[in-house]
Computed example of a mutant assay.
Amino acid sequence: MTAQRLRSFCLGLAGAVEDVPFPSAPGLTVFKVESKIFALCALDEDPLTVSLKCDPEEAVRLREAYPSIVPGWHLNKRHWNTVTVGELPQRMVRELVEDSYDLVVATLPRAARLRLDRP
């Protein structure tokens, strides 16, 4: 998966927006839904990596099964994984992004979830 495909996929999720909120890290792009981050990456980085929210038990399982999935870099390592995108099948990367998005959406107030068509 290329950086452009990753960006397009993230922005294709309901209510997702792109932001560069950290002045000290101008190359760090975040993808948010309702002001809550579900993905962080440096789109011009090689290799391309993306940090994604993950269920804590699933995070450990994924790290044990895939060397290209490691604890979130500069994030709460219990809830975030950093994924080297090019080392995993594109379908798996999409599923991990969707899982991260779903975890964030699940924490939103009901009215926000309904606006996103995610009751």
Rank of each mutant, 00 (worst) to 15 (best):
D99P: 10
L62N: 08
E98A: 04
I69C: 10
N81W: 08
I69Q: 09
N76C: 14
V83F: 01
V93L: 00
P67L: 11
E98F: 02
H79R: 15
Q90N: 05
T107S: 08
L62D: 03
R94K: 11
A65S: 14
E98L: 10
P109Q: 11
A106N: 13
N81S: 12
R91F: 02
E95S: 13
N76F: 14
Y101S: 01
L88R: 02
D102K: 06
L75P: 13
L108N: 10
M92T: 09
P109T: 14
E98T: 06
H74M: 10
R91H: 03
R110A: 12
V104T: 06
R110M: 12
L75A: 14
V85K: 00
P71Q: 14
G86T: 00
L96W: 09
S100F: 12
A65W: 01
V83E: 00
V85F: 00
T107W: 01
A106P: 05
T107E: 11
I69K: 08
P67I: 08
E95Y: 01
V104R: 04
E87T: 07
K77T: 15
R110D: 06
E87W: 03
N81Q: 13
G86W: 00
Y66G: 04
V70E: 02
L108P: 13
P109K: 15
E98P: 01
R63K: 06
V105N: 05
P109R: 15
K77E: 15
G86K: 00
P89I: 03
R78N: 13
E87A: 12
E64V: 12
S100E: 05
L88V: 08
W80R: 08
Y101Q: 02
I69G: 12
Y101N: 03
A65V: 11
P89S: 08
L75F: 15
W73R: 04
T82R: 08
P109M: 09
G72S: 04
R94Y: 03
E95H: 13
L103P: 06
P109N: 13
E98H: 02
L108W: 12
G72L: 07
W73T: 04
V83R: 00
L108I: 14
Y101F: 04
L96R: 11
V70A: 14
L96F: 07
P71F: 10
M92G: 06
R91Y: 01
N81C: 12
T82W: 00
S68E: 03
N81E: 03
D102E: 11
R78L: 13
V83M: 01
V70D: 01
W80F: 15
Y66I: 06
E87D: 15
K77A: 14
I69E: 09
W73G: 03
E87N: 12
K77L: 10
R63V: 04
L96P: 09
R91I: 04
H74P: 08
L88H: 05
V104A: 07
T82F: 06
V97Y: 02
D102W: 02
D102C: 07
H74Y: 12
L103R: 15
K77R: 15
M92L: 15
R78K: 15
E64N: 14
G86C: 00
W80D: 14
H74N: 12
W80I: 10
